[in-house]
């Protein structure tokens, strides 16, 4: 089985006072005078907690999948972020950046949100896995720079935008400058994912196309997603097997499973394929070094 590996990022400290919370102080004084109690209350001081804008970006290992980074809102307010990615290699460009909603490290148009502008607002301490999609489905060796900045303000720490914080308070650029970038050298092929019983040296690249009932590529109900999984074995592997769950929100199209262009039955029988509606499984057996196998199947968006 080909495995995807990633690190789970530690959630940020969510106990900070949320931006917009009021900090109120009232003091009291009391005494006894001539046998009776006297007292008084002070004025009320009421301060709105400002929004500190901060974020972190960290790379997540995602063998065989798209470049994967985790964006953490380390500020104390709800904030949207501008995310950009550029590549250093001529002829290679960034097709888009998607929020990996199901956190499986793979881009799935039926589930994941392809960004067409800033991200939606992220709660303080919240995290998103972001998938950087290149225009090539094949692994390429390039240098990617992924950068993110808070939409409200970024730049010099301490910069203030009056009234722009949550709850009407001020927004203040925090120590991170409310911006971050990571530079990632992508490798081709990447080691780490191995066939079961064999040595490492396998990569798995998953891509997909969408065909909607109206002929467009919009991910709408009843659109058909064709998934293509290309497994490359740099080293020989024994009893290699590929399992791929059918994404939530879709149903497997019966009879659509193919290996290297040849149809496979859905039942666990004599051939290599098995599609039970929840996952597709293809037994690749023993494969020689340098082998590439292509699996294709379809799912319908619910």
């Amino acid at each position: 089985m080909l495995a995807l590996v990633w690190l789970v990022a530690t959630p940020a400290d969510a106990t900070e006072t949320p931006a917009g919370s009021r900090i109120v102080n009232v003091a009291a004084i009391s005494a006894q005078q001539d046998g009776r109690a006297i007292d008084a209350q002070s004025n009320r001081v009421d301060l709105v907690t400002a929004e500190r804008l901060d974020l972190t970006l960290a790379r997540v290992a995602n063998d065989g999948g798209p470049v994967d980074v985790v964006l953490t809102n380390s500020g104390n307010g709800k904030e949207a972020f501008d995310v950009r990615a550029t590549t250093s290699t001529p002829g290679t460009s960034v097709r888009g950046i998607a929020i990996d909603r199901d956190g499986n490290g793979r881009y799935d148009p039926a589930i994941d949100l392809l960004l067409s502008g800033p991200t939606p607002a992220l709660a303080p301490g919240g995290q998103w896995r972001l998938l950087v999609l290149l225009d090539s489905d094949d692994p390429v060796r390039t240098t990617l720079t992924v950068s993110a900045a808070a939409l409200t303000a970024s730049g010099t720490p301490g910069t203030i935008r009056p009234g722009a914080g949550d709850g009407g308070g001020d927004a203040v650029v925090g120590p991170t400058g409310a911006q971050a970038s990571v530079t990632i050298e992508t490798d081709s092929p990447s080691p780490g994912a191995g066939g079961s019983g064999g040595a490492g040296g396998a990569t798995l690249v998953k891509s997909q196309t969408v065909l909607a009932p109206d002929g467009s590529a919009t991910a709408v109900r009843d659109a058909i997603i064709t998934y293509t999984l290309v497994a490359r074995f740099a080293a020989a592997a024994t009893a290699a097997r590929l399992d791929d769950p059918v994404p939530a929100g879709t149903i497997y199209v019966p009879g659509s499973l193919m290996l290297d262009g040849a149809a496979l039955s859905d039942t666990a029988d004599g051939d290599a394929g098995n599609g039970d509606g929840r996952a597709v499984t293809v037994a690749l057996g023993d494969v020689a070094a340098g082998t590439t196998r292509t699996i294709r199947f379809q799912a319908r968006i619910q």
Binding site: I29, Q33, I38, A40, Q41, S42, N43, V45
Partner: peptide, 12 residues
Amino acid sequence: AAPPAGPLSITT
């Protein structure tokens, strides 16, 4: 501030 009802005054 609340008006002082007695001989004590306090502000914060």
